[in-house]
Design a protein around this nucleic acid. Structure first.
Lengths: 249, 249
DNA sequence: CCATCATGTTGCAGCATGTGCAACGAGGGT
DNA sequence: ACCCTCGTTGCACATGCTGCAACATGATGG
Protein backbone atom coordinates (compact mmCIF):
# COMPACT_ATOMS: atom_id res chain seq x y z
CA UNK A 1 0.00 0.00 0.00
CA UNK A 2 1.31 3.33 -1.02
CA UNK A 3 1.16 6.11 1.50
CA UNK A 4 1.77 8.71 -1.18
CA UNK A 5 -1.04 7.59 -3.43
CA UNK A 6 -3.43 7.30 -0.53
CA UNK A 7 -2.65 10.87 0.42
CA UNK A 8 -3.18 12.05 -3.12
CA UNK A 9 -6.56 10.36 -3.22
CA UNK A 10 -7.50 11.89 0.10
CA UNK A 11 -6.76 15.24 -1.44
CA UNK A 12 -9.17 14.48 -4.24
CA UNK A 13 -11.79 13.42 -1.73
CA UNK A 14 -11.34 16.71 0.08
CA UNK A 15 -11.69 18.67 -3.11
CA UNK A 16 -14.84 16.70 -3.78
CA UNK A 17 -16.34 18.62 -0.89
CA UNK A 18 -15.30 21.95 -2.27
CA UNK A 19 -12.35 24.11 -3.18
CA UNK A 20 -9.40 24.11 -0.81
CA UNK A 21 -6.23 26.08 -0.27
CA UNK A 22 -2.82 24.52 0.13
CA UNK A 23 -2.78 25.14 3.87
CA UNK A 24 -6.24 23.75 4.36
CA UNK A 25 -5.27 20.55 2.62
CA UNK A 26 -2.05 20.28 4.59
CA UNK A 27 -3.94 20.61 7.83
CA UNK A 28 -6.62 18.08 6.95
CA UNK A 29 -4.05 15.52 5.82
CA UNK A 30 -1.81 16.25 8.74
CA UNK A 31 1.28 16.67 6.61
CA UNK A 32 3.56 19.52 5.71
CA UNK A 33 2.32 21.85 3.03
CA UNK A 34 5.39 21.16 0.94
CA UNK A 35 4.27 17.57 0.70
CA UNK A 36 0.78 18.57 -0.34
CA UNK A 37 2.16 20.96 -2.91
CA UNK A 38 4.07 18.25 -4.67
CA UNK A 39 1.18 15.85 -4.66
CA UNK A 40 -0.97 18.60 -6.12
CA UNK A 41 1.59 19.30 -8.80
CA UNK A 42 1.40 15.72 -9.96
CA UNK A 43 -2.37 15.77 -9.85
CA UNK A 44 -2.45 19.04 -11.72
CA UNK A 45 -0.17 17.75 -14.44
CA UNK A 46 -2.69 15.05 -15.22
CA UNK A 47 -5.55 17.56 -14.93
CA UNK A 48 -7.10 15.85 -11.94
CA UNK A 49 -7.03 19.18 -10.17
CA UNK A 50 -6.55 22.74 -11.26
CA UNK A 51 -6.19 25.91 -9.37
CA UNK A 52 -7.95 29.12 -10.04
CA UNK A 53 -6.54 32.62 -10.08
CA UNK A 54 -6.98 32.83 -6.30
CA UNK A 55 -4.79 29.74 -5.80
CA UNK A 56 -7.67 27.58 -4.71
CA UNK A 57 -7.58 24.00 -5.86
CA UNK A 58 -10.54 22.37 -7.58
CA UNK A 59 -11.25 19.00 -9.10
CA UNK A 60 -10.18 19.15 -12.72
CA UNK A 61 -11.40 18.04 -16.08
CA UNK A 62 -9.12 15.01 -16.31
CA UNK A 63 -11.49 13.49 -13.84
CA UNK A 64 -14.55 14.05 -16.02
CA UNK A 65 -12.76 12.67 -19.01
CA UNK A 66 -11.70 9.52 -17.18
CA UNK A 67 -15.08 9.04 -15.61
CA UNK A 68 -16.69 9.37 -19.01
CA UNK A 69 -14.38 6.71 -20.38
CA UNK A 70 -15.13 4.44 -17.46
CA UNK A 71 -18.85 4.75 -17.98
CA UNK A 72 -18.50 4.18 -21.71
CA UNK A 73 -16.57 1.01 -21.03
CA UNK A 74 -19.54 -0.46 -19.30
CA UNK A 75 -21.33 -1.63 -22.36
CA UNK A 76 -24.38 -2.45 -20.30
CA UNK A 77 -24.89 1.21 -19.60
CA UNK A 78 -25.11 2.15 -23.26
CA UNK A 79 -27.33 -0.80 -24.06
CA UNK A 80 -29.69 -0.13 -21.19
CA UNK A 81 -29.92 3.65 -21.53
CA UNK A 82 -32.68 3.90 -24.16
CA UNK A 83 -34.81 1.29 -22.43
CA UNK A 84 -34.40 2.89 -19.03
CA UNK A 85 -35.17 6.31 -20.47
CA UNK A 86 -38.38 4.90 -21.89
CA UNK A 87 -39.30 3.34 -18.57
CA UNK A 88 -38.57 6.60 -16.85
CA UNK A 89 -40.72 8.40 -19.36
CA UNK A 90 -43.59 5.92 -19.13
CA UNK A 91 -43.73 5.81 -15.34
CA UNK A 92 -42.42 9.25 -14.48
CA UNK A 93 -40.45 7.65 -11.64
CA UNK A 94 -36.77 7.51 -10.76
CA UNK A 95 -35.01 4.67 -12.57
CA UNK A 96 -31.62 3.33 -11.57
CA UNK A 97 -29.12 1.00 -13.16
CA UNK A 98 -26.72 -0.72 -10.78
CA UNK A 99 -23.90 -3.22 -11.11
CA UNK A 100 -21.96 -5.47 -8.78
CA UNK A 101 -18.26 -4.79 -8.63
CA UNK A 102 -15.68 -6.02 -6.21
CA UNK A 103 -18.00 -6.80 -3.31
CA UNK A 104 -20.09 -3.66 -3.73
CA UNK A 105 -23.18 -2.59 -5.59
CA UNK A 106 -22.81 0.67 -7.43
CA UNK A 107 -25.21 2.90 -9.30
CA UNK A 108 -23.95 3.32 -12.82
CA UNK A 109 -26.85 5.24 -14.31
CA UNK A 110 -29.84 7.20 -13.19
CA UNK A 111 -32.93 8.78 -14.71
CA UNK A 112 -34.62 11.28 -12.46
CA UNK A 113 -38.25 11.35 -11.56
CA UNK A 114 -40.38 14.20 -12.80
CA UNK A 115 -41.90 14.61 -9.37
CA UNK A 116 -40.69 17.36 -7.11
CA UNK A 117 -40.10 14.84 -4.32
CA UNK A 118 -37.16 12.77 -5.44
CA UNK A 119 -34.90 10.13 -4.06
CA UNK A 120 -31.36 11.22 -3.42
CA UNK A 121 -28.70 9.22 -5.18
CA UNK A 122 -25.86 9.77 -7.55
CA UNK A 123 -24.01 7.78 -10.15
CA UNK A 124 -20.99 6.16 -8.54
CA UNK A 125 -22.46 5.87 -5.07
CA UNK A 126 -22.77 2.53 -3.37
CA UNK A 127 -26.13 0.97 -2.71
CA UNK A 128 -26.68 -0.59 0.72
CA UNK A 129 -26.12 -4.32 0.30
CA UNK A 130 -28.77 -5.46 2.74
CA UNK A 131 -31.63 -3.14 1.92
CA UNK A 132 -31.52 -1.80 -1.64
CA UNK A 133 -33.61 -3.74 -4.10
CA UNK A 134 -30.87 -3.62 -6.73
CA UNK A 135 -28.43 -5.15 -4.27
CA UNK A 136 -30.76 -8.04 -3.59
CA UNK A 137 -31.09 -8.74 -7.28
CA UNK A 138 -27.34 -8.66 -7.84
CA UNK A 139 -26.40 -10.61 -4.72
CA UNK A 140 -29.05 -13.22 -5.42
CA UNK A 141 -27.23 -14.27 -8.57
CA UNK A 142 -23.78 -14.68 -7.02
CA UNK A 143 -22.48 -18.22 -6.62
CA UNK A 144 -23.41 -19.40 -3.15
CA UNK A 145 -19.89 -19.31 -1.66
CA UNK A 146 -19.30 -15.72 -2.73
CA UNK A 147 -22.82 -14.76 -1.74
CA UNK A 148 -22.20 -16.11 1.75
CA UNK A 149 -18.88 -14.38 1.95
CA UNK A 150 -20.29 -11.02 0.90
CA UNK A 151 -23.28 -11.34 3.21
CA UNK A 152 -20.97 -12.24 6.08
CA UNK A 153 -19.09 -9.01 5.51
CA UNK A 154 -22.13 -6.76 5.61
CA UNK A 155 -22.68 -4.30 8.40
CA UNK A 156 -26.35 -4.80 9.07
CA UNK A 157 -26.99 -1.26 10.17
CA UNK A 158 -30.76 -0.83 10.49
CA UNK A 159 -31.88 2.12 8.38
CA UNK A 160 -35.57 1.77 9.17
CA UNK A 161 -37.81 -0.53 11.21
CA UNK A 162 -38.12 -2.86 8.27
CA UNK A 163 -34.44 -3.27 7.48
CA UNK A 164 -33.26 -6.87 7.51
CA UNK A 165 -30.76 -7.13 10.34
CA UNK A 166 -29.35 -10.64 10.18
CA UNK A 167 -27.34 -12.56 7.59
CA UNK A 168 -29.88 -15.38 7.79
CA UNK A 169 -32.80 -13.12 6.99
CA UNK A 170 -30.94 -11.65 4.02
CA UNK A 171 -29.87 -15.02 2.65
CA UNK A 172 -33.46 -16.22 2.87
CA UNK A 173 -34.63 -13.08 1.11
CA UNK A 174 -32.03 -13.59 -1.62
CA UNK A 175 -33.33 -17.12 -2.22
CA UNK A 176 -36.78 -15.69 -2.64
CA UNK A 177 -35.52 -13.01 -5.00
CA UNK A 178 -33.69 -15.55 -7.10
CA UNK A 179 -36.82 -17.69 -7.31
CA UNK A 180 -39.28 -14.94 -8.20
CA UNK A 181 -36.98 -13.02 -10.52
CA UNK A 182 -37.31 -9.60 -8.90
CA UNK A 183 -36.71 -7.83 -5.60
CA UNK A 184 -38.37 -5.18 -3.56
CA UNK A 185 -37.28 -2.73 -0.94
CA UNK A 186 -40.37 -2.00 1.11
CA UNK A 187 -39.17 0.97 3.16
CA UNK A 188 -36.11 -0.97 4.23
CA UNK A 189 -33.59 1.69 3.39
CA UNK A 190 -35.52 4.93 3.62
CA UNK A 191 -38.70 4.91 5.62
CA UNK A 192 -40.68 6.65 2.92
CA UNK A 193 -39.30 5.08 -0.22
CA UNK A 194 -40.24 1.82 -1.86
CA UNK A 195 -38.35 0.21 -4.73
CA UNK A 196 -38.65 -2.70 -7.07
CA UNK A 197 -35.72 -4.09 -9.01
CA UNK A 198 -35.23 -6.63 -11.76
CA UNK A 199 -32.19 -8.46 -13.11
CA UNK A 200 -30.58 -7.87 -16.47
CA UNK A 201 -28.86 -10.96 -17.85
CA UNK A 202 -26.35 -11.47 -20.60
CA UNK A 203 -26.15 -14.31 -23.11
CA UNK A 204 -24.78 -16.70 -20.51
CA UNK A 205 -27.67 -16.04 -18.18
CA UNK A 206 -25.55 -14.33 -15.56
CA UNK A 207 -26.96 -11.19 -13.99
CA UNK A 208 -24.80 -8.32 -15.19
CA UNK A 209 -26.84 -5.43 -13.81
CA UNK A 210 -30.06 -4.53 -12.07
CA UNK A 211 -32.67 -1.97 -13.00
CA UNK A 212 -34.95 -0.43 -10.40
CA UNK A 213 -37.78 1.99 -9.89
CA UNK A 214 -37.77 4.04 -6.69
CA UNK A 215 -40.85 5.87 -5.53
CA UNK A 216 -41.45 8.00 -2.45
CA UNK A 217 -44.51 7.05 -0.42
CA UNK A 218 -46.04 10.45 -0.89
CA UNK A 219 -46.08 9.94 -4.65
CA UNK A 220 -47.35 6.37 -4.79
CA UNK A 221 -48.25 3.95 -2.00
CA UNK A 222 -46.42 0.65 -1.82
CA UNK A 223 -49.12 -1.36 -3.59
CA UNK A 224 -49.07 0.89 -6.61
CA UNK A 225 -45.30 0.58 -6.83
CA UNK A 226 -45.80 -3.15 -7.21
CA UNK A 227 -48.15 -2.34 -10.08
CA UNK A 228 -45.13 -0.95 -11.92
CA UNK A 229 -43.45 -4.34 -11.77
CA UNK A 230 -44.68 -5.62 -15.16
CA UNK A 231 -43.24 -2.57 -16.90
CA UNK A 232 -39.96 -2.94 -15.05
CA UNK A 233 -39.71 -6.63 -15.87
CA UNK A 234 -40.48 -5.93 -19.52
CA UNK A 235 -37.74 -3.31 -19.58
CA UNK A 236 -35.24 -5.64 -17.95
CA UNK A 237 -36.12 -8.35 -20.44
CA UNK A 238 -35.69 -5.94 -23.33
CA UNK A 239 -32.26 -4.91 -22.10
CA UNK A 240 -31.32 -8.54 -21.55
CA UNK A 241 -32.40 -9.28 -25.11
CA UNK A 242 -30.13 -6.49 -26.36
CA UNK A 243 -27.35 -8.10 -24.35
CA UNK A 244 -27.82 -11.22 -26.44
CA UNK A 245 -29.87 -13.25 -24.04
CA UNK A 246 -31.94 -15.56 -26.28
CA UNK A 247 -34.75 -16.49 -23.86
CA UNK A 248 -35.52 -12.89 -23.15
CA UNK A 249 -36.39 -11.95 -26.70
CA UNK B 1 6.55 16.36 -8.20
CA UNK B 2 5.70 12.94 -6.98
CA UNK B 3 6.84 10.00 -9.03
CA UNK B 4 4.51 7.68 -7.17
CA UNK B 5 1.40 9.72 -7.78
CA UNK B 6 2.28 10.25 -11.41
CA UNK B 7 2.59 6.50 -11.83
CA UNK B 8 -0.73 5.93 -10.16
CA UNK B 9 -2.39 8.39 -12.49
CA UNK B 10 -0.77 6.76 -15.48
CA UNK B 11 -2.35 3.53 -14.34
CA UNK B 12 -5.74 5.20 -14.34
CA UNK B 13 -5.09 6.55 -17.82
CA UNK B 14 -4.25 3.07 -19.00
CA UNK B 15 -7.39 1.65 -17.49
CA UNK B 16 -9.27 4.40 -19.27
CA UNK B 17 -8.41 2.57 -22.46
CA UNK B 18 -9.69 -0.72 -21.18
CA UNK B 19 -9.17 -3.42 -18.61
CA UNK B 20 -5.60 -4.43 -17.81
CA UNK B 21 -3.81 -7.18 -15.92
CA UNK B 22 -1.13 -6.54 -13.37
CA UNK B 23 1.62 -7.61 -15.75
CA UNK B 24 0.30 -5.49 -18.57
CA UNK B 25 0.33 -2.43 -16.36
CA UNK B 26 3.82 -3.21 -15.11
CA UNK B 27 5.09 -3.45 -18.64
CA UNK B 28 3.46 -0.26 -19.84
CA UNK B 29 4.74 1.71 -16.86
CA UNK B 30 8.14 0.11 -17.07
CA UNK B 31 8.21 -0.79 -13.38
CA UNK B 32 8.18 -3.96 -11.40
CA UNK B 33 4.80 -5.58 -10.96
CA UNK B 34 5.20 -5.41 -7.20
CA UNK B 35 5.20 -1.66 -7.49
CA UNK B 36 2.10 -1.65 -9.62
CA UNK B 37 0.38 -3.98 -7.23
CA UNK B 38 0.82 -1.62 -4.34
CA UNK B 39 -0.30 1.40 -6.28
CA UNK B 40 -3.37 -0.55 -7.34
CA UNK B 41 -4.08 -1.54 -3.77
CA UNK B 42 -4.21 2.08 -2.76
CA UNK B 43 -6.37 2.96 -5.75
CA UNK B 44 -8.65 0.04 -5.03
CA UNK B 45 -9.09 1.06 -1.43
CA UNK B 46 -10.52 4.37 -2.55
CA UNK B 47 -12.58 2.62 -5.24
CA UNK B 48 -10.78 4.29 -8.10
CA UNK B 49 -10.19 0.85 -9.54
CA UNK B 50 -11.65 -2.55 -8.90
CA UNK B 51 -10.76 -5.93 -10.17
CA UNK B 52 -13.10 -8.49 -11.50
CA UNK B 53 -13.17 -12.20 -10.80
CA UNK B 54 -10.54 -12.73 -13.51
CA UNK B 55 -8.13 -10.36 -11.77
CA UNK B 56 -8.45 -7.71 -14.43
CA UNK B 57 -8.40 -4.17 -13.23
CA UNK B 58 -11.06 -1.66 -14.24
CA UNK B 59 -11.81 1.94 -13.44
CA UNK B 60 -14.01 1.98 -10.36
CA UNK B 61 -17.05 3.74 -9.09
CA UNK B 62 -15.15 6.11 -6.82
CA UNK B 63 -14.24 7.87 -10.00
CA UNK B 64 -17.84 8.37 -11.05
CA UNK B 65 -18.76 9.61 -7.64
CA UNK B 66 -15.95 12.14 -7.59
CA UNK B 67 -16.59 13.25 -11.12
CA UNK B 68 -20.23 13.76 -10.26
CA UNK B 69 -19.26 15.90 -7.30
CA UNK B 70 -16.88 17.91 -9.43
CA UNK B 71 -19.53 18.63 -12.02
CA UNK B 72 -22.05 19.55 -9.34
CA UNK B 73 -19.59 22.00 -7.90
CA UNK B 74 -19.57 23.98 -11.10
CA UNK B 75 -22.63 25.99 -10.39
CA UNK B 76 -22.62 27.30 -13.93
CA UNK B 77 -23.35 23.83 -15.20
CA UNK B 78 -26.50 23.47 -13.15
CA UNK B 79 -27.65 26.96 -14.00
CA UNK B 80 -27.02 26.56 -17.69
CA UNK B 81 -28.41 23.05 -18.12
CA UNK B 82 -32.11 23.85 -18.58
CA UNK B 83 -31.36 26.66 -21.01
CA UNK B 84 -28.96 24.58 -23.02
CA UNK B 85 -31.39 21.70 -23.10
CA UNK B 86 -34.00 24.04 -24.49
CA UNK B 87 -31.61 25.36 -27.11
CA UNK B 88 -30.72 21.80 -28.04
CA UNK B 89 -34.36 20.97 -28.29
CA UNK B 90 -35.24 24.04 -30.34
CA UNK B 91 -32.40 23.68 -32.83
CA UNK B 92 -31.88 19.94 -32.79
CA UNK B 93 -28.14 20.58 -32.89
CA UNK B 94 -25.26 19.66 -30.61
CA UNK B 95 -24.86 22.16 -27.80
CA UNK B 96 -21.73 22.46 -25.66
CA UNK B 97 -20.86 24.26 -22.48
CA UNK B 98 -17.17 24.98 -21.94
CA UNK B 99 -15.11 26.72 -19.28
CA UNK B 100 -11.59 28.05 -19.00
CA UNK B 101 -9.50 26.43 -16.34
CA UNK B 102 -5.78 26.64 -15.75
CA UNK B 103 -4.74 27.59 -19.26
CA UNK B 104 -7.11 25.18 -20.96
CA UNK B 105 -10.64 25.19 -22.29
CA UNK B 106 -12.67 22.21 -21.24
CA UNK B 107 -16.10 20.93 -22.17
CA UNK B 108 -18.16 20.66 -19.03
CA UNK B 109 -21.51 19.76 -20.50
CA UNK B 110 -22.95 18.49 -23.73
CA UNK B 111 -26.34 17.98 -25.32
CA UNK B 112 -26.27 15.74 -28.33
CA UNK B 113 -27.73 16.48 -31.70
CA UNK B 114 -30.68 14.44 -32.87
CA UNK B 115 -29.07 14.01 -36.26
CA UNK B 116 -27.37 10.75 -37.07
CA UNK B 117 -24.23 12.65 -38.10
CA UNK B 118 -22.79 14.03 -34.90
CA UNK B 119 -19.72 15.77 -33.73
CA UNK B 120 -17.42 13.73 -31.56
CA UNK B 121 -16.67 15.23 -28.17
CA UNK B 122 -16.94 14.27 -24.58
CA UNK B 123 -17.32 16.06 -21.29
CA UNK B 124 -13.90 16.64 -19.78
CA UNK B 125 -12.02 16.84 -23.06
CA UNK B 126 -10.03 19.89 -24.00
CA UNK B 127 -11.10 22.16 -26.80
CA UNK B 128 -8.40 23.33 -29.20
CA UNK B 129 -7.40 26.81 -28.07
CA UNK B 130 -6.81 28.28 -31.52
CA UNK B 131 -9.73 26.87 -33.44
CA UNK B 132 -12.73 26.02 -31.28
CA UNK B 133 -15.34 28.76 -31.10
CA UNK B 134 -15.77 28.27 -27.36
CA UNK B 135 -12.03 28.79 -26.86
CA UNK B 136 -12.14 32.07 -28.74
CA UNK B 137 -14.97 33.32 -26.57
CA UNK B 138 -13.20 32.36 -23.36
CA UNK B 139 -9.74 33.59 -24.38
CA UNK B 140 -11.16 36.86 -25.66
CA UNK B 141 -12.21 37.80 -22.16
CA UNK B 142 -8.89 37.10 -20.46
CA UNK B 143 -6.87 40.10 -19.28
CA UNK B 144 -4.45 41.02 -22.05
CA UNK B 145 -1.28 39.82 -20.30
CA UNK B 146 -2.69 36.39 -19.61
CA UNK B 147 -4.27 36.25 -23.03
CA UNK B 148 -0.88 36.91 -24.62
CA UNK B 149 0.77 34.37 -22.38
CA UNK B 150 -1.74 31.67 -23.21
CA UNK B 151 -1.66 32.43 -26.92
CA UNK B 152 2.12 32.31 -26.85
CA UNK B 153 1.96 28.82 -25.44
CA UNK B 154 -0.37 27.42 -28.09
CA UNK B 155 0.79 24.84 -30.57
CA UNK B 156 -0.73 26.18 -33.76
CA UNK B 157 -1.21 22.81 -35.35
CA UNK B 158 -3.30 23.32 -38.50
CA UNK B 159 -6.35 21.06 -38.37
CA UNK B 160 -7.82 22.24 -41.65
CA UNK B 161 -6.98 24.74 -44.38
CA UNK B 162 -8.81 27.44 -42.49
CA UNK B 163 -7.11 26.99 -39.12
CA UNK B 164 -5.45 30.13 -37.81
CA UNK B 165 -1.76 29.36 -37.67
CA UNK B 166 -0.12 32.39 -36.07
CA UNK B 167 -0.41 34.06 -32.67
CA UNK B 168 -0.99 37.38 -34.40
CA UNK B 169 -3.93 36.07 -36.39
CA UNK B 170 -5.48 34.58 -33.28
CA UNK B 171 -5.00 37.70 -31.19
CA UNK B 172 -6.64 39.75 -33.92
CA UNK B 173 -9.50 37.27 -34.08
CA UNK B 174 -9.92 37.46 -30.31
CA UNK B 175 -10.21 41.24 -30.51
CA UNK B 176 -12.94 40.82 -33.05
CA UNK B 177 -14.71 38.23 -30.93
CA UNK B 178 -14.56 40.47 -27.87
CA UNK B 179 -16.01 43.35 -29.89
CA UNK B 180 -18.86 41.46 -31.53
CA UNK B 181 -19.76 39.33 -28.52
CA UNK B 182 -19.65 35.94 -30.19
CA UNK B 183 -17.25 33.68 -32.03
CA UNK B 184 -17.36 31.27 -34.91
CA UNK B 185 -15.37 28.31 -36.02
CA UNK B 186 -15.81 28.13 -39.77
CA UNK B 187 -14.32 24.71 -40.50
CA UNK B 188 -11.18 25.62 -38.62
CA UNK B 189 -11.04 22.55 -36.45
CA UNK B 190 -12.85 19.91 -38.46
CA UNK B 191 -13.20 20.49 -42.16
CA UNK B 192 -16.88 19.68 -42.15
CA UNK B 193 -18.05 21.25 -38.95
CA UNK B 194 -19.02 24.83 -38.23
CA UNK B 195 -19.66 26.25 -34.80
CA UNK B 196 -20.86 29.44 -33.20
CA UNK B 197 -20.24 30.27 -29.56
CA UNK B 198 -21.39 32.95 -27.14
CA UNK B 199 -20.14 34.10 -23.75
CA UNK B 200 -21.91 33.57 -20.46
CA UNK B 201 -21.13 36.27 -17.92
CA UNK B 202 -21.61 36.50 -14.18
CA UNK B 203 -22.67 39.48 -12.12
CA UNK B 204 -19.25 41.09 -12.45
CA UNK B 205 -19.33 40.88 -16.21
CA UNK B 206 -16.53 38.35 -16.42
CA UNK B 207 -17.00 35.51 -18.86
CA UNK B 208 -17.40 32.35 -16.80
CA UNK B 209 -18.32 29.93 -19.57
CA UNK B 210 -19.12 29.65 -23.24
CA UNK B 211 -22.05 27.99 -24.95
CA UNK B 212 -21.80 26.75 -28.50
CA UNK B 213 -23.72 25.09 -31.29
CA UNK B 214 -21.81 22.70 -33.54
CA UNK B 215 -23.25 21.59 -36.85
CA UNK B 216 -21.81 19.28 -39.51
CA UNK B 217 -21.81 20.70 -43.03
CA UNK B 218 -23.97 17.92 -44.28
CA UNK B 219 -26.72 18.91 -41.88
CA UNK B 220 -26.65 22.67 -42.36
CA UNK B 221 -24.41 24.85 -44.53
CA UNK B 222 -22.32 27.52 -42.87
CA UNK B 223 -24.74 30.37 -43.56
CA UNK B 224 -27.59 28.61 -41.87
CA UNK B 225 -25.47 27.96 -38.83
CA UNK B 226 -25.07 31.71 -38.51
CA UNK B 227 -28.86 31.91 -38.60
CA UNK B 228 -28.86 30.06 -35.29
CA UNK B 229 -26.85 32.85 -33.69
CA UNK B 230 -29.82 34.83 -32.33
CA UNK B 231 -31.12 31.80 -30.49
CA UNK B 232 -27.67 31.06 -29.12
CA UNK B 233 -27.17 34.63 -27.95
CA UNK B 234 -30.59 34.64 -26.33
CA UNK B 235 -29.71 31.44 -24.49
CA UNK B 236 -26.38 32.82 -23.35
CA UNK B 237 -28.09 35.97 -22.11
CA UNK B 238 -30.67 33.94 -20.25
CA UNK B 239 -27.98 31.90 -18.53
CA UNK B 240 -26.06 35.07 -17.72
CA UNK B 241 -29.20 36.53 -16.21
CA UNK B 242 -29.55 33.45 -14.02
CA UNK B 243 -25.95 34.00 -12.96
CA UNK B 244 -26.98 37.39 -11.63
CA UNK B 245 -25.83 39.55 -14.49
CA UNK B 246 -28.13 42.61 -14.37
CA UNK B 247 -27.70 43.89 -17.94
CA UNK B 248 -28.58 40.55 -19.39
CA UNK B 249 -32.05 40.34 -17.87
C1' DC C 1 -2.71 -37.17 -12.73
C1' DC C 2 1.30 -34.72 -12.60
C1' DA C 3 4.25 -31.22 -14.94
C1' DT C 4 4.52 -26.82 -16.52
C1' DC C 5 3.33 -22.25 -17.13
C1' DA C 6 1.29 -17.96 -16.17
C1' DT C 7 0.04 -14.70 -12.81
C1' DG C 8 -0.60 -12.65 -8.38
C1' DT C 9 1.54 -12.17 -3.54
C1' DT C 10 4.99 -11.79 0.24
C1' DG C 11 9.62 -10.75 2.75
C1' DC C 12 13.43 -8.24 2.60
C1' DA C 13 17.57 -5.16 1.74
C1' DG C 14 19.04 -0.89 -0.41
C1' DC C 15 18.56 3.43 -1.64
C1' DA C 16 15.72 6.63 -4.36
C1' DT C 17 12.31 9.52 -3.32
C1' DG C 18 9.19 11.64 -0.50
C1' DT C 19 9.26 14.47 3.65
C1' DG C 20 9.72 18.39 6.87
C1' DC C 21 12.32 22.40 8.08
C1' DA C 22 13.66 26.97 7.39
C1' DA C 23 14.37 30.69 4.57
C1' DC C 24 12.58 33.30 0.70
C1' DG C 25 9.16 35.83 -2.19
C1' DA C 26 4.86 37.79 -3.65
C1' DG C 27 0.58 39.92 -2.82
C1' DG C 28 -2.95 42.30 0.04
C1' DG C 29 -4.63 44.74 3.78
C1' DT C 30 -4.01 48.37 7.21
C1' DA D 1 5.62 51.54 4.31
C1' DC D 2 4.89 47.81 7.16
C1' DC D 3 3.25 43.42 8.42
C1' DC D 4 0.91 39.24 7.72
C1' DT D 5 -0.55 35.43 5.06
C1' DC D 6 0.27 31.99 1.89
C1' DG D 7 2.72 29.68 -1.79
C1' DT D 8 7.54 28.27 -3.34
C1' DT D 9 12.44 26.71 -3.18
C1' DG D 10 16.85 24.35 -1.38
C1' DC D 11 18.47 21.04 1.37
C1' DA D 12 19.47 17.17 4.68
C1' DC D 13 17.44 13.14 6.50
C1' DA D 14 15.16 8.82 6.75
C1' DT D 15 10.87 7.03 5.43
C1' DG D 16 8.72 4.20 2.48
C1' DC D 17 9.02 2.91 -2.21
C1' DT D 18 11.34 -0.22 -5.30
C1' DG D 19 12.98 -4.44 -7.36
C1' DC D 20 14.53 -9.03 -6.57
C1' DA D 21 13.71 -13.63 -5.59
C1' DA D 22 11.07 -17.03 -3.59
C1' DC D 23 6.37 -18.63 -2.82
C1' DA D 24 1.34 -19.54 -3.77
C1' DT D 25 -2.34 -20.54 -6.68
C1' DG D 26 -4.91 -21.79 -10.54
C1' DA D 27 -5.07 -23.02 -15.41
C1' DT D 28 -3.35 -25.88 -19.31
C1' DG D 29 -1.93 -29.79 -21.55
C1' DG D 30 0.32 -34.03 -22.29
Amino acid sequence: MSQTVTRALRILAQLGEGERSLDQLAEVLGVHKTTVLRLLQSLEEERFVYRDAAYRYHLGAGLFALSGLALEQRGIRRIAAPHLAELNNATGQTVHLAAYEGGEVVYIDKFDSRHPVRMYSRIGLRAALHSAAVSKVLLADLPLPERRRVVAGIDFAPHTERTLTTPEALLAELEKVAAQGWAQDHAEHEAFINCVAAPIRDATGRVVAAASISVPDVVLPYEQVLDLLPQLLATARAVSADCGRPEAI
